[in-house]
Design a protein around this nucleic acid. Sequence first.
DNA 1: ACAGCCATGTAACTCGTTACATGATTAC
DNA 2: GTAATCATGTAACGAGTTACATGGCTGT
Lengths: 190, 190
Amino acid sequence: MSQEPHASLPITAYALLGLLTFGDELTGYELKQRADLTLRFYWVAPATSQVYSELARLTEHGLVEGVTSQGEGRRTTVYRITSEGQDALRAWLDGSRVGFPTLKHTVLLRLLIGHATEPARIRAVLEEYVDELAVALRDLRAVRDSLRGSDAPGEAFFYPSVVADWGLDYFAAETRHTRRALARLSEGEP
Amino acid sequence: MSQEPHASLPITAYALLGLLTFGDELTGYELKQRADLTLRFYWVAPATSQVYSELARLTEHGLVEGVTSQGEGRRTTVYRITSEGQDALRAWLDGSRVGFPTLKHTVLLRLLIGHATEPARIRAVLEEYVDELAVALRDLRAVRDSLRGSDAPGEAFFYPSVVADWGLDYFAAETRHTRRALARLSEGEP
DNA sequence: ACAGCCATGTAACTCGTTACATGATTAC
DNA sequence: GTAATCATGTAACGAGTTACATGGCTGT
């Protein structure tokens, strides 16, 4: 049970809590997999160890409860969100300042100081990024497709599908921006 | 002088080092301002204390050197990049894996678990984001405009101008994506 | 039998933040 | 004279990572 009702958690804790609101109970391991699948595009892919420590803290606060099954074999704990957890999540969504997204864009950072190396190297960096964007697009498209069937307004995966489509648009836009920068770099030299 | 030539620094150290490659010498305070002005859009706006501690470390490694002027009044230290620093920066640009950008998108995170609160709240979050994007666009446009005059290929601010234009495209795209999501949310309800 | 995945953690460490402290200089 | 800005840090802390340890289960 939660002693401190107003203890503020890191956003990642709410992110993990949010992943538990889609109707199923998950082990730490599964939660990590789910985070890797979807959350990584918009937030982070937390380390396995962090998933477990965050789950421990959420349990302490009573926002999550785990059922441990100790057969003779492997010990596993399945977590589900509690109603206090639902309340806390909603309070976070409703009450906290939104804040501007943070971008840690290693490609743009390199481009910014491009004059410190050869133009060919910068072009190579941008081309590598285009390739990686294609991979990300493919992965995210697979996720998006897996939501079909319950992505209509009111259905379970409506919001995730809106987010996935946003992500697809985002990667497509990034690809265009990268191509535009490459064209700009070619202006100077043949 | 650097004892360990291969001690790997955090990326933020290279980012700050990169800000010192535009031909001028800066105090820690000025470096922080410059980071707030441009770096924050693509990387981070490091805390003041981190700027100073990072400068101390860069100095230890011999990548930067500071000249302290102790008049009778205020003590100030102006930093410039050394040739070892130039080499290290170039080695980082050329040698390290690029890596995919990391997005910590609080808006998308909230949208992902939108079903945990009222639709009206989610719409409000998105509209707030559109407003903040407008501010960011205005700020970045001012930066971009300040580069005019030396933004042609080969000139001092060519790369920064490419980056700034990319950023402007990015914020414009984000605005479109947010509007699209808002439209999607309105499909369900009148 | 052995590799690879499932499952759960601990320990040490770094990055980066907030809060705080100090004092000089400039603008009104 | 006083508020804002310039300028430089220290201390405590928290988030998150990497490396490591342990062992059961599954497919070939």
